[in-house]
């Protein structure tokens, strides 16, 4: 049963695809091409990030990380989390391995939550595009509000950490 639950999402997507294929074969072909394309993008991004995470795991000592993002790091921790998030490119699944490494090395939960929030809000690689398409006011509102919101959420997550039962893998 547990195994089934673990496989239920891939199964659901596979069924969805089969459904699409029956309903609209041309569209299913397009979906296949798009899937291949996003697989390629994933392979361009994820393996090097994972190697980097593996290397950091070996070379960065726990004490070093604690100084920057440990429970007593204060405001500095938020600044580092923001910088890390803003420079990293890619979808959220790239941020997950980085976040698990930081957690394992003892980073405070508030910095992890803020990192994930910032990762979904501020992206330097697409920032110029956002400004060009939607204007500076929109972009500022997006980033300003997003960061403020996730800052508060990060503090809340840390406050209720015991309730959330976060895994420390």
């Amino acid at each position: 049963m547990k195994n089934f639950k673990k496989k239920s999402f891939p199964l659901f997507v596979a069924l969805l695809f089969v459904g699409l294929f029956i309903a609209d074969p041309a569209r299913a072909m397009k979906a296949t091409l798009l899937t291949g394309n996003s697989l390629l993008n994933m392979l361009l991004l994820l393996p090097p990030i994972l190697v980097l995470v593996g290397l950091l795991d070996q070379w960065v000592r726990k004490e070093t990380l604690l100084r920057y993002m440990g429970p007593d790091a204060g405001t500095r921790g938020f600044v580092y989390a923001l910088l890390l998030a803003a420079f990293a490119a890619g979808p959220l699944y790239v941020a997950f391995p980085i976040a698990t490494l930081l957690l394992k090395k003892g980073a405070g939960l508030r910095y992890i939550v803020f990192f994930l929030g910032a990762f979904t809000t501020v992206k330097l690689p697409v920032l110029l595009y956002e400004i060009a398409s939607f204007g500076i006011a929109f972009t500022m509102l997006h980033i300003g509000f997003g960061l403020t919101f996730f800052f508060i959420i990060a503090l809340l997550f840390e406050r209720y950490q015991p309730v959330l039962r976060v895994k420390q893998s």
């Binding site: 891939p10 997507v13 596979a14 695809f17 699409l20 979906a31 798009l34 899937t35 996003s38 994820l46």
Partner: peptide, 15 residues
């Protein structure tokens, strides 16, 4: 998980 997610991205974008 990623393979399933990628397939889902493909389906999303096509629909």
């Amino acid at each position: 998980d990623l393979l399933a997610i990628m397939l889902f991205v493909g389906v999303s974008l096509s629909v």
